[in-house]
């Protein structure tokens, strides 16, 4: 009632909230950074080979392709969508490259083919989700089977291995030799920088958060929700195509099971990075940190001969803990989320 008489007068409202150090330290990104330090310390103690510049740079080959796809996936999850067909898209793009390579195409053509196939796959997903109005999880489970299935039909139990050496130079090459920076890792860092700027500094980024937090209110505010979602699916496809180029170049062959199961690893990167599966929350920085945590933890454990499948246990626990800890901690501190 008190503000009735003063309508029109100014209240004293601060421009921004003072952020305490406590809040900063308990932010998800800080926790991930600490986790990353722990990964380096533990692995450094476990194996003398871990803290070696060349080994570490080699390690990035194993996660840069997935990490690249994790960036647009993070944006998709942010707007309450998901693309489970990314690994199958990689397989299909790699297949198309293989067929062209067998027909004698050169490296530039192969790159173009890989990117185009990725873009087409992403566009198909985007159309089914936005124009037809289907749930993305079902659509992309379907296209995952379809894309991977096509690769299986064409390849059977064969493999394409006749790739020009130029493609290998892209997948296995270095942008800078000393310190050693692999091209794929450099691409990931560049893409992460672009994603961070888009998400945190541009009008598009703000609209992504708005859609993720309340798609209805976003639409009522004039945000072109479906166009943006469509664009994200297309970009996710395109980046999957890029990942296919790098991966095919790195391993020099295309088999039907190429990149099998990557969709789950990529989603794990995104969720561990603090992107809420319910949409609307998450940062590029968090995803990048999660990529490093997962990538270097995997590398370190494999140095001491822990089999990959056992490392998966750790990743699974990390994933569940990542979402469970904030909820449980919130409840213990009596901040149970309430409605109204």
């Amino acid at each position: 009632m008190s503000d009735q008489a003063q309508a029109g007068s100014r209240y004293d409202v601060a421009d921004r909230a003072a952020r305490s150090w406590g809040e900063r330290l308990t932010s998800w990104e800080s926790i991930l950074a600490l986790l990353l330090v722990a990964v380096f310390v533990v692995n450094g103690l476990l194996s003398p080979y871990f803290l070696d510049l060349f080994n570490l740079s080699d390690a990035t080959f194993n996660f840069s392709e997935k990490a690249l796809v994790a960036l647009p996936m993070a944006l998709l999850v942010l707007v309450r969508e998901i693309d489970l067909s990314v690994a199958a898209t990689i397989a299909l793009a790699s297949l198309a490259m293989g067929l062209c390579a067998e027909a004698g195409a050169g490296t530039p053509v192969l790159i173009l083919v890989g990117l185009c196939v990725g873009l087409v796959c992403g566009t198909a997903n985007g159309l089914l989700v936005t124009a037809v109005g289907l749930p993305s999880i079902v659509v992309t489970i379907g296209t995952m089977s379809l894309f991977r299935g096509i690769a299986q039909v064409v390849l059977g139990d064969q493999a394409v291995t006749k790739y020009p050496s130029g493609l290998g130079a892209i997948g296995q090459g270095y942008l800078v030799d000393m310190p050693p920076v692999p091209l794929s890792f450099a691409l990931f860092l560049a893409a992460a920088a672009v994603a961070a700027v888009v998400l945190h500094r541009t009008a598009l980024g703000r609209q992504l958060y708005a859609i993720g937090n309340n798609p209805v209110a976003a639409r009522f505010s004039g945000v072109p929700v479906d166009r943006i979602r469509f664009g994200l699916f297309a970009v996710t496809g395109l980046v999957s195509g890029l990942a296919a180029v790098l991966l095919t170049g790195r391993i020099g062959s295309t088999r039907p099971n190429i990149a099998m199961g990557w969709e789950l690893e990529i989603v794990t990167m995104v969720v561990l990075g603090g992107v809420s599966i319910a949409g609307g929350a998450g940062t590029v920085g968090g995803v990048v940190l999660a990529v490093f945590v997962l990538g270097f933890a995997t590398f370190g454990l494999s140095l001491v001969n822990v089999p990959g499948i056992v490392i998966n246990i750790l990743l699974g626990v990390l994933l569940v803990a990542a979402i469970a800890v904030p909820v449980v901690a919130g409840r213990l501190m009596g901040r149970a989320p309430t409605r109204d």
């Binding site: 599966i277 056992v310 699974g316 979402i323 449980v328």
Partner: peptide, 27 residues
Amino acid sequence: ALIAGVGLPPIVVTLGTLSIYRGLIFV
């Protein structure tokens, strides 16, 4: 327990336990 008790999203929880259960077979 994680989904009903803690209130976590089913897709993330079962994605996590998928990795864990597969890994445990090996162990």
